[in-house]
Design a protein around this nucleic acid. Structure first.
Length: 731
RNA sequence: GGGCGAUUAGCUCAGUUGGCUAGAGCAACCCGUUUACACCGGGUAGGUCAGGGGUUCGAGUCCCUUAUCGCCCACCA
């Protein structure tokens, strides 16, 4: 027996050595598996794309959990003999990365405009490269069997070509258009953001009820008096008796130094029960008011600029930030005797997901994707949609989930998905930041050119804006497989992918966008199953955050307990959609399990030292009984593997190994070895060896390192050298 | 305002399509080392499965209801 078993299991030494074996084998790459004769070239394909981590820093425990789940899926299918690809990459994460680098520059007292676009982007690229390198090494530490030879980046040349191709097609189909409309403006990030990048927060505010002027017939209420300088109407409910006589009238007056004219309009949107039942309409600075203005053809008047400062008004208001201007306007109302009521209220404030700034709705010229416009469907692999049939993006997105061509797990998220799509508005895809895919539109005078490359000839100027990062992420399942070349081997073999495993927090940002892009561009689905995992929380179930100081670094945990133990702690009891509380004690428990398995191996090897697995003999009655029990369990486990119930399989393997195999069978074996007949002893030795091989094989997707290490001492001549490439037991 | 989820042992949680005396890890208490493993073994204690009602031969599991907590979505000024 190998002397290593005389010492307790040392995860750290073993894991590094095993990683090396796997990487040097090249078997993460399915092509190498085929070359070595380990995978049948005609085998069914199985593919997953890694949700590309943002190059904004290092991986956290959430990533660790994601890697563990996906690696289980991948190793399992590889062992089933499938042509298995797990494709890695990273995401440039436009705004997130740019604002991170801006913060770093701020510490050096450098502003990005002083550097200029080119120098700034060099800084960002350096930062992104560092993050990338850290992420790659962390993925490897987790034992993730990713095919690095196919690694991609959302902002590299190949992906740019895919992005430009997609943009051009959508533009030519009239799905991408440019229009001035009210947008979510982030005054801190100096860019627009899409609706789902706006995080709503309930904050304390003050509701002011006042009259515009002494001549105005009735009061209105608002939480933002400073925007009233931009009012162009007052809306009331059409059936509200109090205001009937005023509908259609126009009133002009001076408000805090600005000449204002408002028209009284009747609109169903107004709730007569709320406040005074009359709403000052500010089309340029409120999304709801913009919609009212559209319905009544009202003029637009911008009073706040991109820096969140007032551009009109009296002294103390003009050129002042909105918060201070609000105070000034309220003071003015008081002094004029126009303020009637001031009361505390809770208001829902939109903030920018990345910068935390309060969103200032502003009218701006932007690029949009029309989700309602009908277009002829591409050559369609979508069930019940024929080629050329007129469909909208929204319809396609709903259709493929409704007809279960795409399955979402857990299924309750399907409802959430439908609800979101049904209320979807056009997608604002242009951003006023530097880091990202530059919009593939060029201008020369009044001419406009949209294409995958700059037009020939001088004086063409490319659009300054970049694309929303999710535009490129939306193409991920096929831009990584060679698209727009649909004839490439990878594309033909691995698309659509089988499973998308990701967090339920990005179902709208990403999952929905991938479905949008793929159904539109390919007339196909991007993946068959969406497996959504929850959040990794701390031991007490709290969200990990910097302010709570409860962030756990997966690398520290691996150093302490080993990757196998961490993986088990993240998997057991963690079903789809559920949050997992990561308790260090749980990891500790599974590191003990590793040692248990180690000692089981020691016992079995000691007792079976001189023998090989014998295929031609009959088990004793007792052993036949044990085999039967075992096979029943293993069949059940295989079924559960196919149902994505990794949380059950891992737990059951743990209990079988410890409570049944070690506590009962090994103990019983001691008696047999002492008192049994020759036949009984031989049978039991065979049984132990056989069982341990089965256990180690089935545990491999969960605890890849220790099982691979044990396999070295367990394999026979006719077994494959590397456990990763061994077949999953078929019973 | 709409939707979803949770509530099981001191703590953190499993419990798969309703089916034998409700489980795990950690914590607590007692005992055990001539060895596969003290990173261990054996044992003890601890739960009216949030409350109430219903369906059923049978409910932690299904239905209704109440309470508490949490999450997501939404243009109530």
């Amino acid at each position: 027996m190998n002397e290593k078993y005389l010492q307790p299991y040392n995860a750290e030494n073993v894991e590094d050595a095993i990683s090396k074996i796997w990487e040097e084998s090249g078997f993460y790459n399915p092509d190498e598996m085929i070359k070595a004769g380990l995978t049948d070239p005609n085998a069914e394909a199985f593919s997953i794309v890694l949700p590309p981590p943002n190059v904004t820093g290092t991986l956290h425990t959430g990533h660790a959990s994601m890697l563990a789940i996906q690696d289980i899926m991948v190793r399992y299918h590889r062992m089933l003999g499938k042509r298995t690809l797990w494709l890695p990459g990273t995401d440039h994460a436009a705004i997130a990365t740019q604002s991170k680098v801006e913060k770093l520059l701020q510490k050096e007292k450098i502003r990005k405009h002083d550097l200029g676009r080119k120098a700034f982007l060099e800084r960002v690229n350096t930062f992104a490269q560092d993050s990338h390198d850290t992420i790659v090494s962390q993925c490897k530490k987790m034992g993730a069997s990713l095919d690095w030879s196919r690694e991609a980046f959302t902002l590299d040349k190949e992906r740019e070509h895919a992005v430009y191709t997609a943009f051009t097609q959508m533009y030519n189909d009239g799905l991408i258009y440019q229009k001035e409309r009210i947008v979510n403006w982030d005054p801190k990030g100096q860019t627009t953001i899409s609706d789902d990048e706006v995080v709503r927060e309930n904050r304390k505010g003050t509701m002011y009820t006042f009259k515009y002027s002494h001549d105005f017939p009735f009061p209105i209420a608002t939480t933002r008096p400073e925007t009233k300088l931009g009012d162009t109407a007052v809306a009331v409910h059409p059936e509200d008796k109090r205001y009937q006589e005023y509908i259609g009238n126009e009133y002009s007056f001076n408000f805090a130094g600005e000449d204002v004219t408002v028209k009284i309009v009747a609109d169903e949107h107004v709730d007569p029960e709320f406040g005074v039942g009359a709403l000052g309409v500010t089309p340029a600075h409120s999304v709801a008011d913009w919609d009212i203005a559209q319905r009544h053809n009202l003029p637009l008047k911008q009073v706040i600029n991109e820096y969140g400062k007032m551009i009109v008004g009296m002294e103390g208001v003009k050129d002042v930030k909105v918060a201070a201007a609000r105070e000034a306007v309220v003071e003015w109302l008081k002094s004029e005797g126009l303020l009637l009521v001031k009361e505390d209220t809770i208001q829902s404030v939109g903030t920018a997901e990345r910068t935390g700034a309060v969103i200032e709705p502003l009218p701006k010229l932007q690029w949009w994707i029309d989700v309602n416009k009908k277009f002829p469907a591409k050559d369609s692999k979508i069930e019940d949609i024929e080629k050329g049939q007129m469909v909208s993006l929204k319809e396609l997105m709903l259709h493929v989930v409704r007809n279960e061509q795409i399955d979402i797990l857990p299924s309750r998220f399907e409802k959430t998905y439908f609800n979101w799509i049904e209320n979807l508005r056009d997608w604002n895809i242009s951003r006023q930041i530097w880091y990202g895919h530059r919009i593939p539109v060029w201008y020369k005078g009044d001419d406009i050119f949209v294409g995958t490359e700059a037009p020939s000839g001088d004086d063409w100027k490319q659009d300054e804006d970049t694309l929303d990062t999710w535009f490129s992420s939306g193409l991920w399942t096929f831009s990584t497989l060679g698209w727009p070349n649909t004839e490439s081997d990878d594309f033909k073999t691995y698309h659509p992918t089988n499973i998308l495993e990701t967090g339920h927090d990005i179902i709208f940002f990403w999952v929905a966008r991938m479905i949008l892009m793929t159904t539109y561009l390919l007339g196909d689905i991007p993946f068959e199953t969406v497996y959504l995992h929850g959040l990794v929380r701390d031991a007490k179930g709290r969200k990990m955050s910097k302010s709570l100081g409860n962030i756990i670094d997966p690398v520290d945990l691996i150093g302490k307990y080993g990757t196998d133990a961490l993986r088990m702690a993240l998997i057991v009891g963690n079903g789809p959609g559920g949050d997992v509380n990561l308790d260090e004690n749980k990891i500790k428990a599974y590191s003990k399990f590793g040692n248990k398995l180690w000692n089981i191996t020691r016992f079995v090897l000691t007792e079976t030292e001189s023998i090989n697995l014998d295929k031609d003999f009959e088990y004793s009655l007792r052993d036949q009984e044990l085999i039967k029990e075992q096979e029943e369990l293993f069949q059940e486990l295989t079924k559960e593997m196919n149902e994505f119930k990794y949380y059950l399989v891992s737990e059951k393997l743990y209990h079988y190994t410890w409570d049944t195999f070690a506590s009962e069978i090994l103990e019983e074996s001691k008696t047999i070895f002492e008192n049994g007949s020759t036949e009984e002893i031989h049978s039991r030795r065979q049984f132990l060896l056989h069982s341990l091989k089965m256990i180690v094989t089935m545990l491999h997707p969960f605890m890849p390192f220790i099982t691979e290490e044990i396999w070295k001492d367990l394999k026979n001549n006719d077994d494959r050298d590397i456990l990763m490439t061994v077949s999953w037991p078929t019973l």
